[in-house]
Design a protein around this nucleic acid. Structure first.
Ligand code: FES
Ligand code: FES
Lengths: 134, 134
DNA sequence: AAAAATCGGACTATTGTTATCCGAATTAAT
DNA sequence: ATTAATTCGGATAACAATAGTCCGATTTTT
């Protein structure tokens, strides 16, 4: 398994939708209906993206969200991080490496790290803008 | 999340161990003890790798496993497939694409596929041999 | 015959993901 | 002021996937 969560998938799709409607405040309801994403789940996702600076919210009636930045400068890596997830392929590459109870028997850390860095490069170099270009 | 399963992680580490002891038949018990991997779980993993041609088993006392091929020609992508898992980042890129109930509202298939292909390239070009070079 | 190993199926425990619910706060329009 | 539409935020439930365990059968060497 090497799958992105629905939170990330929906998040990216929602950001893509917002990028394609830039200038307008878009409500969670609109995105939910247009993209057939469960409303409550999407709301949570957008709230997290707002909290972490990827989008800006406007509360109250007529409220909704707008992209905080140029789609060209928002990377998939940043979105994943903003959604409070990560893209780490094996436990031992997590920040708190000392935490891994396999550290003493681990013989794959270095080679796995090479692979990880290449994946990071891809995620750091794919932006929301690329999702807008259909 | 973009994590490899323990089955894959243990599998790769076990193959790496076998590559470093090539020529010898290695038992699941030995690998389990040396690498501190749960025996039953590892056994299952090795049996699947055997069934799908990555390693060759020898039954009975003095039995165990040997790599079926040159470590240089066994890729991570092949290992994942042999373990009957996959490395597909979003559902809609699975083989049975028609199966995805979001196909009609999906606006991310093409861009996600580009990312997927780049990841596939990495997995197809990383071999067990690279895990042996410490 | 015994011992040490693979084989294979079933099962359980644990965790992680996905989805839902509900009440509170905010804001615009009436 | 009131109402309506929205975001906010915490709790919880339903579901799925992962990880780990157990046990008996089979194979093969000694
Ligand atoms: S498995 Fe934790 S250090 Fe590699
Ligand atoms: S989400 Fe299934 S086709 Fe894209």
């Amino acid at each position: 398994m090497l799958k992105l969560s629905k939170k990330i998938e929906y998040g990216i799709q929602a950001l893509q939708y917002m990028a394609n409607n830039s200038g307008n405040v878009i409500s969670a309801k609109e995105i939910s209906e247009q993209l057939n994403i469960p409303y409550d789940f999407l709301s949570k996702t957008l709230q997290i993206l707002n909290k972490n600076g990827i989008i800006v919210s406007q509360q109250g009636i007529k409220g909704g969200y707008i992209l905080a930045r140029d789609p060209k400068s928002t990377t998939v890596a940043e979105i994943i991080k903003a959604l409070e997830e990560n893209a780490i392929i094996v436990d031992c590459l997590a920040e708190d490496e000392e935490n891994c109870d396999r550290i003493n028997v681990c013989t794959i850390k270095n080679p796995m790290n090479k692979l990880q860095e290449k994946i990071n490069y891809l995620l750091n170099n794919t932006t929301i803008a690329e999702f807008s270009e259909v």
